[in-house]
Each structure stands twice: as C-alpha cells, then as structure tokens.
Design a protein around this nucleic acid. Structure first.
Lengths: 346, 346
DNA sequence: TTGTAAGCGTTATCAT
DNA sequence: ATGATAACGCTTACAA
C-alpha cells in the first residue's frame, strides 16, 4: 500500500500536490499561473511538476471549465491539394488560438453522420466542408447549440460560412476564352457535386448571356479525376466544342488527353481551362490557364469564424476572392508572370 | 430552481434522466447498451435521447473510463502529398478503430515541444513523424508512460516505428543508373534532413561500392524544393556529374531546370531520378524515374501499432517496401506500365 | 498565501 | 431491472 509505484498511468494533480507538500488548489494555481502563490512554493511545485512530468489531464480540465478547447473539421477526403491546404490553414489558426484540432474524413462512408455526432461530444464547434453532411444534420447540430461554420458548402439557415468566389472568376475565364475567338464552349464538371462547381457553371452561363453568345443548355457532367475528364471531354468534342472550361484541374488534364487522342492540339485547336491551380498546372504542357483559390486562408478564416462563434460573437459569412491565372492552354502566350522557379517543359 | 431551461449548453445525462423519469444510471446503460434494462424503459429513454439530441459529453466519459479514445499525429507540414497521404491513412485506421484523431503540425514553430506536451493531455498515444520532436522529448513522453509510435523517424530506444525502406530502392535506382552507362553520379539531398534521406544516401554509396565504381565522398547538400534542387544540381554539374540521384521529386524538378539552363537534355545528356512519385512525376517531360512509397499504409500501420501499444501489447517495428518506378528520366524508353490514364506530354 | 470543498458529466459498483 | 453513489482529475469559489 505504501511504496511508490510509477508505471500506473500518468501522474495526476494529487500526486504532485503530495510530493510538493501543498494542496491541489495550489498546484492548479501554479500550473495555470492564475491565483496568488508565493515565489518559494511556486518554485517547489514547479520543480515537482517537472520531476514527475506532470501534464494536467485534458478531460478533467475540460470538464471543470466546461469547454473542450478543441474544434473539429469534417472534410470529404484528402486526395489532391485542396483539403490539405484548407486543413493546414485551419490547423495554423487553431494552434494560434491555443486550441486543438480534430479531423474527420467522411470519404464515402455510410455512417458518417454517426461519426460526426461522435465528434460533437469532444469539441466546442465544428467546421463542415463541402458536401460532407446533410442539411438536416447541420440543423440538428445547430439546434443543440453547437457552433458550426460552413466551408465551401451550400448555406444552411444562417450558419456563418466561408467560401471562395466562383462566379466572377468563372465569368472572367469564360469571357477570356471568347476573346480567343471561341464560340462553342463546353463546361465540364458536375454542378451537383459541390456549390462551387455549381457557381462555376452559373458564371459560365452568365458570361454567355453577357456576350450574347448562345451557350450550351447544360454542363457535360463529369465526376472527378482525369478519367472522368477525358470521357466528358470526348463527348464535348463530339458535339463540336472548341473550348473546354473545366470545373477543376484534374478534369482539365483528362481533357488534354481527349484532345490529343484525336490528334488535336491544345490550345491551337482546342482551348482548355481548369480550376484550383494545382502544382501540375504550371508544369503541364501547355501550362494550364486556371483559377487560384486562397485555400489556406479559407481554412484559417473558417477557424477564426468558429472561434468568434464559440465566443458568442456573431460573425458574418466571408467570401474570399479567387484569381484567374492566365497561362498557355487558353491560347495566350506562355506568360512571364509564372512564379519562379519554373521548369519550362518543351 | 424548478423550471426547464433549454439553451444552456447541450443536454446532459441528468436532463435526459429527468425527462425520462429514470436515474442517470439507466440512461447510461441505455446509451452504452451494456447493463440490463427493460425494453419498455429502454424505448422511452431512447426516445428522450433523440428528442433532446443528447450526446454524452466526451470529457466526462473520458474521465470516467480513464481513456481518451483519441490519438494524435504530429507532422512537420502538409505541403506536398507525403504527409497528406500519411495522415489520410492514419485517419482511416483511427476511425475504423472507433477512435478520434488530433493533428498537430509543428511547422518550424519554436514552441512545438509545448504544443506536443499540450496534446499529450488529450490523447492515449501519439504518432511522431519525421524530425518534428527531439529525441529527449520522445524519451520524456515515454518515461511518462505515454504510448508513442515513430513514423519515418530515427529510432529512439525501443519505441516501435514504421518506415518505408530506402536502402534497397536507393541501391536499385543507383545501379539502374549505372546500367545506363553513367559513372559520375551525384546525390542531391540532405542526409541530415531526415533518416530517410540519410538511408538513401547510404544506398547510393553502397551501390557504388558494390559496383566498384568510385563515388562521391559526400552528397550535394540541398534543403527542400525546386530552388534548392536547382542550385545543388548546378554545383553537381560543375563537378562533372552526368547523373543526378535526388532525395525527392521536388529536388529532381529543380535539377531538370539546371540541366536545361545549360542547354543540356534529360536524359540524353544527364540522367535524373527522384523519390516519392508525386503526381507531377508522371506528367513531367521526360517522365521522372522515381521511388514510390506506400504512404497511406505507412499512416495506417502507425495507427495500428499505436493501438496495440495502447492495448498493452508489444508491437514490433515495421518496414514497408518501396518500389522503383522506372520512367524516362533515367534514359529508359517511356514505359508502358505507367498507370493509366496518362496525358503524354510531348 | 494557502487549503477545503463543491462541482463538471460520465461510468460503474453496489444495493435494492 | 433500477437507483444511489463513489470515483475520475481538474478548476474555482470560499474560508481560513
């Protein structure tokens, strides 16, 4: 009964208090550097804390302060740089706010609702991205009083949200393609896949209306990835399109393949544009005209809004701007403003 | 004192018990489907739980069961696909084990030790990757009895670790370059940067010894990224190298730039190889001969080892195999085994 | 300046 | 089958 065991789990506040010959209240005060405590006992306690390698148990603390000091971000997947960057931005902002970050990827999991619900029990708030959870789940969470921020997700009631603008860049990119003389454009991508894709399609259509150019009535639906892009592009070419405006860069790469497979050239015969500005966009030949989103800022902003929400402030939604990056695939000369260093591929 | 307030934070087990007219013990039994409970009260409680949107408070639970049911992964950064993939694999394995995952990026933060320490208070174990934390911190954590798994990190005492083999592929790739007739090879990368890089350098040197080819005494040090690769490659070319074995693909891309800047060609004049098989490797021209690591499996395996460790088993370390992917930059014909679909860039 | 003690929301061990 | 009740590890009035 006496004797000093060590291995039995991490030291707790009682063990420290015992060893330092003080009460747990004093240990707590020292730890958190809040209440008053004499320099001498402070030093003693600090030494013991160090000796024993004491770290306050997070759950105990969270329970006492009625706060988890943790948030969670729910995203569909991590393939491609988009969500990696978003999460990185989010992580930075979280750490700066001395909070911790849980991540949950829903993939195409059937039980993702449960998983999200489980996460709820451990966080002070949640960032929900893309199409990861249904509207009614979002509502349920909010009804429970859980602070929720939406990221690149269709709005739900008045939940604060963060997204990058898609409409204006989509109009710009489409208009730019017009300027290269194209009149038969196809939009490749699935507007149902994400609100972003939907807005890109709307911008594409609006640009046609603005220019008085008759445009296609519908996008050429495509899932994700090169294969999908290639197939969709083939359909588009069949219908006589001379320019392919793609909802993301991967689709555009697939489109390159379809164009080449017909013995045609990008951009001389067919113009192609993408979206996201993945690393490959600079390196591919011809370099890809695309739209760059501030992905890290997206994540960081979402985290900030969430913290405001948790602090009972009432943050308003944020729309960040995206920039068209003109390169060669639209028909322009390979630009000189490409960020150095660049390997120019023949 | 009486009266039913609602908005005051999420419902707790007492509120549910009250409303259902049972004790909190019963609610807990229903929630966890463990103890005995009559079907009728079970249903009633379940209904109330649903009505009130009750989710047990994670901290309360963790405190009671003396387990967080959460682990953490500490990584340096998320630029590039490497850690994204590792984390994704880790996330999958974690969710499958019905646990939750914290992430912490150390970047180059000065106070990363503190951050890790903080994380410790909320997890049952930690995955430490690369050079994120010092050896002594790892030891301190282990001394406290915290389960720790190392991922692509130099060993510390007998902590279980997971890594991808680097030695054999490095020997293979180097030998392969010999077979193209090269005898003046340079290794570009910083062995001090990571244990992986160090092992690649060792393999490079070993291959020289095996082949009886006199090799360089030291690598051409390079930090990370294209710029570093380019500069290092220039130095290597100056010293007469005709083949550049790079510690990662980004460095190899930089090397491409250096070669081209001298009016030389890859691979006709200079052979180049990389490591990691980033997406770009397939698309760049000439396509890059490189080494593919099983990144997701790396992450998933680390998580599994950690869970075993937490369960007081004694997992042994794992070394996963990596494969050389022969493409064109070494001097081979562009291979046909490139994963479809591929945009063949001229 | 320090200590005592009452929670925080669970789980789990007892009784009943 | 159900209900008290004692932990779990911490913070924070409130006393001393």
């Amino acid at each position: 009964m006496a004797g000093d065991r060590r291995p039995d789990g991490p030291a707790n506040i009682y063990a420290v208090a015992d060893r330092a010959g003080v009460s747990i209240a004093t240990v707590s005060r020292v730890q958190n550097a809040n209440g008053p405590v004499s320099p001498v006992t402070r030093d003693r306690v600090l030494r013991v804390i160090d000796e024993m390698g004491y770290t306050p148990n997070g759950s105990g603390r969270a329970l006492a302060v009625r706060r988890h000091d943790a948030i969670g971000i729910v995203f569909p997947d991590l393939s491609g740089p988009y969500y990696s960057e978003v999460i990185l931005g989010c992580e930075r902002a979280t750490v700066e706010a001395t909070q911790s970050l849980y991540i949950l990827a829903t993939h195409a999991r059937a039980n993702s609702d449960e998983l999200v619900l489980d996460l709820v029990s451990r966080v002070d708030g949640l960032i929900l991205t893309g199409r990861t959870v249904d509207d009614d789940v979002v509502r349920r969470l909010r009804d429970r009083g859980l602070p929720v921020v939406l990221l690149a997700r269709p709005p739900v009631d008045d939940a604060p949200s963060v997204r990058a603008e898609s409409l204006r860049p989509a109009i710009e990119v489409t208009t730019h393609v017009f300027q290269h003389g194209h009149r038969q454009l196809a939009f490749i991508g699935d507007p149902a896949a994400s609100p972003d894709a939907e807005e890109r399609w709307r911008g594409f259509a609006l640009a046609h209306a603005d220019a008085g150019v008759p445009g296609p009535a519908a996008p050429v639906a495509a899932a994700f990835g090169e294969t999908a892009g290639r197939e969709a592009a083939e359909a588009a070419l069949d219908s006589g399109a001379t320019a392919l405006v793609c909802a993301d860069d991967e689709l555009a790469l697939g489109a390159y393949g379809a164009v080449r497979a017909r013995g045609l050239r990008v951009p001389e015969d067919i113009a192609v544009t993408g979206w996201d500005d993945i690393q490959l966009a600079r390196f591919v030949s011809p370099s890809l005209t695309t739209v760059r989103q501030p992905m890290r800022v997206l994540g960081a902003t979402a985290a900030q809004l969430l913290f405001e929400l948790i602090a009972d402030e009432a943050p308003s939604s944020v729309v960040l701007s995206s920039d068209v990056v003109v390169r060669a695939s639209c028909g322009c000369e390979p630009p000189s403003d490409i960020p150095e260093p660049e390997v120019v591929l023949r």
